[in-house]
Design a protein around this nucleic acid. Sequence first.
DNA 1: CTTGACCCTGACATTAATGGCAGGGTGTAT
DNA 2: ATACACCCTGCCATTAATGTCAGGGTCAAG
Lengths: 132, 132
Amino acid sequence: MKIGELSRRTGASIRSLRYYEAQGLIAPLRESNGYREYSPLAEEQVRTIRFYLQLGLTTEQIAGFLNCVLSRPETFCTEVLPVYESKLADIEAQIAQLTRIRDNLTDRIASFRGESQQGEGESMRDERSERR
Amino acid sequence: MKIGELSRRTGASIRSLRYYEAQGLIAPLRESNGYREYSPLAEEQVRTIRFYLQLGLTTEQIAGFLNCVLSRPETFCTEVLPVYESKLADIEAQIAQLTRIRDNLTDRIASFRGESQQGEGESMRDERSERR
DNA sequence: CTTGACCCTGACATTAATGGCAGGGTGTAT
DNA sequence: ATACACCCTGCCATTAATGTCAGGGTCAAG
């Protein structure tokens, strides 16, 4: 299978497939004319790569356990768990941060609504509060 | 006040202060030797800029309403509300996306725990589910 | 032989705010 | 004058995956 077909089958752009190769995630053979030749298993492999990318893992992290998860169930690959745990910690921190900002924004939007109709006992002062 | 002092007072790096100027957020005078001379009001102005940056707004968005909010309470500046609303929509989408990923990660981590002790009636198969 | 659909490599762009360096001027105190 | 603390501009780097050129082979069908 050549790169165009693999791209069509997996939804990954040709550019991305070449990038995965440069990152050591996949290693197609080369035909005598220099064209990449992918084995049929590459299709599953690329889907797996894209799945982990969607989870927010980097190509470097994926490279660390891809061989393992391709050959057996993920839960048997001890390299995977710490990656998941650290990613989870990241995400939770991001969610916490975004939630703080969201709450701040909703408060501020609400104070527009209050201000535009009538001051309902609220301070008219510019209240730019931090919530760190 | 020169740039070093303003930097010390506000916590913004000198580099950042020059960047804010390049983005049209602040316009110090120049002394005959080319040094920037900031008015005392600049301190408040920079704090305001940094506050909005922490809310995740871009310098371009801030430029759109900074003059207004510096001279009156934020809630009187009609340019601000749509910016807040669109930023809020962004943030909520990001939170939703991160939450999906987080839930996926926690599920997968949980299945490690199940797998490592004994299969408790769970499928041993690699269950890589999507949750879109 | 030409057309058209493939494939190749290499390189630059993207995003936004910030860090950091090089090379150089200014100003004050010793 | 020399040292030292400032200031200036301009430029490159950062991050990670992807898009998008340019410039060039390959190969089948007509």
